[in-house]
Simulated assay, not measured.
Amino acid sequence: MSETPDEAPAPPHGYSPHKEAHLRRLKRVEGQVRGIARMIEDDKYCIDVLTQVSAVTGALQTLALSLLEEHMGSCVVDAAKAGDEQAKEKVAEASAAIARLVRS
């Protein structure tokens, strides 16, 4: 979808300043997941596999918390400045995201 000259560019997301760091973290996680698959293919000991699963889970949780913090610090704050209805919507989104993280 291309931008017309009259349209302003989409505002950056809260994570935009840290995008490269997040992508590096995800590439490490991707490598860890491939490593877990190899461990299972090679019939490694269950506890060793579970240890690696725990490491991946922790890395993803750290990323999720960082993204949530960035969302709260930019998107929610900006919405609060813009107006009541927009602020309520962003807070509801953040609350739903927090609930999903807590359940996972």
Rank of each mutant, 00 (worst) to 15 (best):
E20S: 10
A37M: 14
E20L: 07
G35W: 12
G31S: 02
H18A: 09
K27M: 08
Q32G: 01
R25N: 03
R34K: 10
V33D: 09
G31Q: 03
Y45I: 00
R24D: 14
A21W: 05
Y45Q: 10
E20W: 12
R28E: 14
H22K: 01
E30I: 02
E41H: 13
I40Q: 15
V33Y: 05
D43L: 05
K19I: 09
E30V: 05
R38G: 03
D42Y: 06
G35Q: 06
G31V: 01
R38S: 12
G35R: 03
E30D: 13
R25A: 12
I47K: 12
V33T: 07
L23A: 04
V33C: 05
E41T: 11
I47P: 04
Q32W: 10
K44R: 15
R25E: 09
M39L: 10
H22Q: 04
C46L: 14
L26K: 06
I40S: 14
G35S: 09
E30L: 04
L26C: 06
A21L: 02
H22C: 02
H22F: 08
K44F: 13
D42C: 10
R28T: 09
K27C: 01
M39N: 14
R24E: 12
V29K: 00
I47Q: 13
A21Y: 09
R24G: 02
L23Y: 08
Y45C: 00
A37P: 00
K27S: 08
L26A: 08
V29A: 10
I40R: 10
H18Q: 15
A37I: 14
Q32P: 07
M39P: 14
I36Q: 02
V33I: 06
D42E: 15
G31W: 11
E30S: 11
E30H: 11
R28G: 02
L23G: 04
C46A: 15
V29H: 00
R25T: 00
M39I: 02
E41Q: 15
E30C: 07
R34Y: 06
V33A: 08
Y45A: 03
E20V: 12
A37G: 03
R24T: 10
R24K: 10
G35A: 04
I47W: 08
R25V: 00
Y45P: 00
E20Q: 14
D42I: 04
C46P: 10
R25P: 00
I36T: 04
I36F: 01
V33R: 02
M39E: 13
D43E: 15
L23Q: 07
E20F: 07
A37Y: 12
H22S: 04
D43P: 05
D43W: 02
A37L: 15
E30A: 08
D42G: 14
Y45G: 00
E30N: 04
I47N: 13
R28V: 01
I36E: 08
E30T: 11
L23T: 06
R38Q: 15
H18K: 13
R24H: 09
L23D: 12
L26V: 00
R34S: 03
A21M: 05
I40D: 14
E41C: 10
Y45D: 12
L23F: 11
K27P: 07
R24L: 07
R24C: 04
E30R: 11
C46E: 15
C46R: 12
R28Q: 10
E30M: 06
I47H: 12
R38V: 02
K19N: 05
R38L: 14
I40M: 14
K27T: 08
C46I: 11
A37H: 09
